[in-house]
Design a protein around this nucleic acid. Structure first.
Lengths: 336, 336
DNA sequence: ATTCATTGATAAAACGATTAACCAAGGATT
DNA sequence: AATCCTTGGTTAATCGTTTTATCAATGAAT
């Protein structure tokens, strides 16, 4: 009574062969209505759930897909996850999320475990300093992979990302148009591709408008380090009246710092974020930011993965989505 | 060259049987050092990764465990996830996170898919209004399960949770000691166990101190709805000088509302949160809250799961951890 | 020179599904 | 009446491991 039911159990209960039972369960083959009913009845009475390991092993299919990301706690990532899950869930896939903590070793272990279980596909934000061996691993095992935000050093994977340089150029242009001349870039740790692209967009705009020499402030990606770094750096550079940020969280941190220093964001110093996380609109004051809609980005990512799974022969795609300037209260005309 | 290597491939390359190769890979059985070397060599050259489906099917073991939670984006949950992953990761398990969105149907689909793949164990925050059939499903399939925060209606699962009533009593006591007499409870939607427990702790304290009749304000669990509900309700009840919250995010929302109304949190109206998420300390003003350390809670959860997996015969456990009052700046003496 | 352990390796039967190939029975077609 | 589809179902091989039982070879003990 308490032993886990298998296909054979169901088949016996319905008085048919396992082959027939299997066909019924999958709605395949030619089965009469009468026996179909019998089998389904038996299955539901026994609370039968097929063993996906066996099924997947034999059929070579697997409707579980993984999303490997560095930090689930990051609100941007959290919203991406929602977008991915919502779409793939509706298509009958099971999405499970892996958090690498941006640690290449941990990432390696996770991906090996992932390959072991031979799942259907992988949506992957490669950890910083991912070794080529890890990319090889995925390729050797023919795991359908879509990279996200960060590109892997190969042309075998589809990619979904953001037009980073274009976005920070737009952001810097915006501040320049408001009369700011001393603009700094804040956020991110050294040598991450995404950040480098954003910095270069910012640099280009600074040069194009013939503004003060570019100034890059390194920090973490969270609120707290945005706060601390801003406090410290702004003391050394009181001439700064505009800050282009690597993410909304640091931007919010920067605003907190300004307030602590008795400055008014959007009045004394203008701050512009990146991502448009939900918090951005609720922050006090509401944050001007380069919006990419993480949720929609997640859906796009899922869509690409679906296309790839359905047509493995499809040529490799790369889709880069633009960010839109969303003006709220943290940017305004440069003071006198 | 490009076909996925299997155990047979490795065995052939090393000139041994698959049985031997298998034993080498798992470090089991009695194998001479010489052949051990040969096999390992071959395996690494071929980039061999065992097929976990086959292995798990035969051996009945699976080192993948799932964490099913309602909303990844919630910072409390995000920190729990870190705690769980850190510990289980170190023990060689693969943790994958499922987001049910607190939707019972979606949860059901996810859990079925989860059972299909016959994974090792489940850490489960049951969705609101989870039907008994879903609990049955897990039991029929003998999936080692630990419920978290919310209890399932069965005594078959281990449980890890919070002493909710005790915590809100402490919180209310704290406000009462500061001289507040009109205290409201804010947050959560109707009829969630956790919330009911918290409300009852609040109620008990209100009655014990002979304060104004309890007042419960319903809202979501996020910042924005905390903000909106507070704006609205406080207009109707201007006598309120203290608010006990169902979570830090609503508490922060409430503070934002106060500021918008020209009131000072901790001076005009005292607010006390629940959870102690990272944001609580960074908020302006820093939030007084009932701290449970989601990260540590996650580790505890993982620990219980490990114990259960290692000794399936162990009697069912239930561990409830207390919350500690962390005083910051949003609570203070009642105004005159 | 038997017998007995011990060591190191292997053959073959699982695990629980899927699926190609096959077949029996009945009806329609010539 | 012989042939040919069609329908509805079954048999048996297969996926890639793990594991039990077995076995050959070698050296130690009688």
């Amino acid at each position: 009574m308490s032993t886990k039911p298998k296909l054979e159990t169901v088949a016996k209960a319905a008085g048919v062969s396992t082959a027939t039972a299997s066909q019924v369960m999958r709605g395949a083959g030619r089965i009469s209505e009468k026996t179909r009913k019998k089998v389904l009845q038996a299955a539901s009475e026994l609370n039968y759930v097929p063993d996906g390991r066996a099924a997947s092993m034999r059929s070579g299919e697997n409707r579980e897909i993984g999303l490997a990301i560095q930090q689930i706690a990051n609100p941007f990532n959290a919203e991406v996850i929602s977008g991915v899950s919502d779409l793939l869930d509706a298509e009958g896939y099971l999405v499970s999320v892996l958090d690498s903590g941006d640690d290449p070793d941990r990432q390696r272990r996770q991906l090996e475990a992932f390959i072991r279980s031979a799942r259907g596909g992988l949506l992957w934000v490669p950890a910083e300093d991912t070794p080529a061996a890890t990319v090889d691993l995925l390729q050797t095992h023919h795991l359908p992979t879509v990279t996200f935000l960060r590109e892997a050093n190969t042309d075998a994977f589809d990619h979904v990302g953001i037009l980073n340089a274009q976005a920070t150029t737009t952001a810097t242009d915006h501040l320049a148009a408001l009369g700011h001349r001393h603009i700094a870039f804040l956020g991110g740790t050294a040598n991450v591709d995404v950040r480098n692209q954003r910095i270069s967009g910012y640099r280009d705009a600074m040069i194009a408008h013939n503004l003060a020499p570019p100034l890059v402030w390194e920090s973490g990606d969270d609120k707290l380090s945005g706060l601390n770094v801003t406090l410290e750096k702004l003391k050394a550079h009181p001439e700064i009246t505009g800050i282009v940020c690597n993410g909304d969280m640091v931007a919010i941190g920067a605003c907190l710092a300004l307030i602590r220093m008795g400055l008014m964001p959007g009045k004394d110093v203008s701050v512009i974020g990146f991502d448009d996380v939900q918090d951005a609109a609720v922050a006090t004051p509401p944050l001007t930011t380069m919006a990419v809609s993480p949720y929609q980005l997640g859906r796009r990512l899922a869509r690409v993965a679906l296309d790839r799974l359905r047509d493995p022969g499809m040529p490799v795609t790369s889709s880069l989505v633009p960010a839109k300037l969303v003006q709220r209260d943290t940017t305004g005309p440069a003071p006198n």
